[in-house]
Design a binder for these strands. Sequence first.
DNA 1: TATAAAAGTTAGCCTTGACTAATAATTGTA
DNA 2: TACAATTATTAGTCAAGGCTAACTTTTATA
Lengths: 162, 162
Amino acid sequence: MADFDPAEDELTPPPEGTGAISAHMTPDRQASHFKRARHARETEIIEDYVELIADLIDEQGEARAVDIAKRLGVTGATVNKMVARLKQMNLVNAEPYRSVFLTDEGREMAEASRERHHIVVALLRVVGVDEATAWADAEGMEHRCSPETLMAFKEFVKRHKS
Amino acid sequence: MADFDPAEDELTPPPEGTGAISAHMTPDRQASHFKRARHARETEIIEDYVELIADLIDEQGEARAVDIAKRLGVTGATVNKMVARLKQMNLVNAEPYRSVFLTDEGREMAEASRERHHIVVALLRVVGVDEATAWADAEGMEHRCSPETLMAFKEFVKRHKS
DNA sequence: TATAAAAGTTAGCCTTGACTAATAATTGTA
DNA sequence: TACAATTATTAGTCAAGGCTAACTTTTATA
Ligand SMILES: [Mn+2]
Ligand SMILES: [Mn+2]
Ligand SMILES: [Mn+2]
Ligand SMILES: [Mn+2]
């Protein structure tokens, strides 16, 4: 952790040949892309949990561990441990044997995740991906799009929604 | 590992409300999306190593551990351990104190990864993402697009290349 | 050709995010 | 209200993918 420092993350122009390196893509800049990618990997699971907890609360009135486990396809033990982490991070409130609730911070993250998720699905649909595939692929892609890219997706979708 | 079985991975239609579940998005289907996503996370780092090794070989004639480390932004020790894993997986050939070479299988994976990487960048450019952001975001997104989505991207780019 | 610098290796540590198995608490039902 | 079924918790295990520090080998150069 603490491997990625946004301050030194200057976005990098593209290569010219087949490989990745050119005058614009120095080893250092490429390394910063990989660091950014590793950072995104770290937050992705947290985001999925929080978004799913919000979905359960909104759909069923509460988020029980057993339902979280069912929808994520993991065991209850895994959920239990992760909920403890989310609590530690002040994203949820949880008491033993009770269901899970979002803090204000958690709710905020959930809404943001949900919006990104939907933008990615919409973009995929607009460029011709079928609905089933769009929902499947968005589950991973959503975590790897920068705000800039999401904004571009949003505007592109708006222009091509017809 | 071995958590994702492509056979039972039926692609899933979308939700209707705000949350994720509807008649078409059952808990089971949503779980299969998450499993697919976890599977992609597992292979992503392997793909980055192999693609980078190919880049180094093509650009510099050989892939030395020190250069792999520099471009990935990790330590030499990390590269050493990972190269041992790649060798185990029959993706590279490597001897102590010598640089790393791709097996036929490794070269194949590298070419495929490279192509996906370029398709994703091209798609992002077409929908209005600037070049620097496109290269940064593609580093993560490239691993999370299904073949169906990549095909859609490819065709969309072809139609909108002008 | 010595010697210093650079590169590679190894051992040991850490966190994350899975798992199983055993146990405990809660909830539904006869 | 008992008791069974469901749900939650805890303890222990594991692999992946990072790290540092110490050491060895190779390579470059004085
Ligand atoms: Mn999501
Ligand atoms: Mn997701
Ligand atoms: Mn790539
Ligand atoms: Mn990548």
